[in-house]
Amino acid sequence: MTGEHPPTPLRRRVEEASLNAWPALQQMLLDGWVVRFSGGFTKRANSVIPLYPALQEPLDKIRYCERLYEQQQLKTIFRLTTVDDFSELDAQLDARGYQRIDPTRVLHRIIANPPQPDPRFMEVPLREWLNVYSDLAEMPRPTQALHSALLKGIRSLCIYGVQYADHQPVACGLAVVERELTGLFDVVTHPQRRRLGHAGALVSSLLGAGAQAGATHAYLQVEENNAPARAMYQALGFTDLYHYWYRAAP
Rank of each mutant, 00 (worst) to 15 (best):
P6W: 11
W33C: 14
Q168I: 13
L68R: 00
R193K: 13
Q72G: 03
G210C: 05
E57D: 15
L130R: 00
Q71K: 05
F41E: 00
H190R: 12
P169H: 09
L196R: 15
R96C: 10
V187Y: 12
A91P: 10
P9W: 06
R141M: 06
F86V: 07
L89K: 03
P6L: 13
A248G: 05
G3Y: 00
P119C: 05
P119I: 02
L68I: 00
D85A: 01
L59A: 14
P119E: 03
V187A: 12
Q71A: 09
S204F: 04
V48R: 14
P103A: 06
Y160Q: 13
R79N: 11
A95Y: 10
I159T: 12
L174D: 05
D118M: 06
E57C: 14
V203C: 03
L89V: 02
Y242M: 07
E66C: 02
H147K: 01
K43H: 10
A199K: 12
P53Y: 10
K152D: 03
V132Q: 04
N225I: 13
W129D: 06
R63F: 03
C172G: 15
R247E: 03
R195N: 04
A211M: 05
V177F: 07
L220E: 13
G183R: 09
L146H: 07
D166E: 15
R96K: 11
V188Q: 08
L207I: 08
H167K: 13
H198M: 09
L207Q: 05
A209F: 07
A145K: 14
L59F: 08
E128T: 01
A248W: 03
N226D: 14
L146K: 08
Y233P: 04
V177E: 11
F78H: 02
I101T: 15
S87E: 10
T143N: 08
N131D: 13
Y242S: 14
I49V: 15
L10P: 15
H5M: 10
D60E: 14
P114I: 04
H167Q: 15
R63Y: 06
P119N: 03
N131E: 13
Y133P: 08
A95V: 12
D60Q: 13
R100A: 12
R247Q: 07
G32A: 06
G237Q: 04
Y244K: 00
V188A: 05
Y64T: 11
K152R: 14
F238C: 08
I49L: 13
N20T: 00
R12W: 15
N113H: 07
T216D: 06
H217V: 10
A199T: 11
H243Q: 15
G237P: 03
A227Y: 06
P117D: 02
T239C: 09
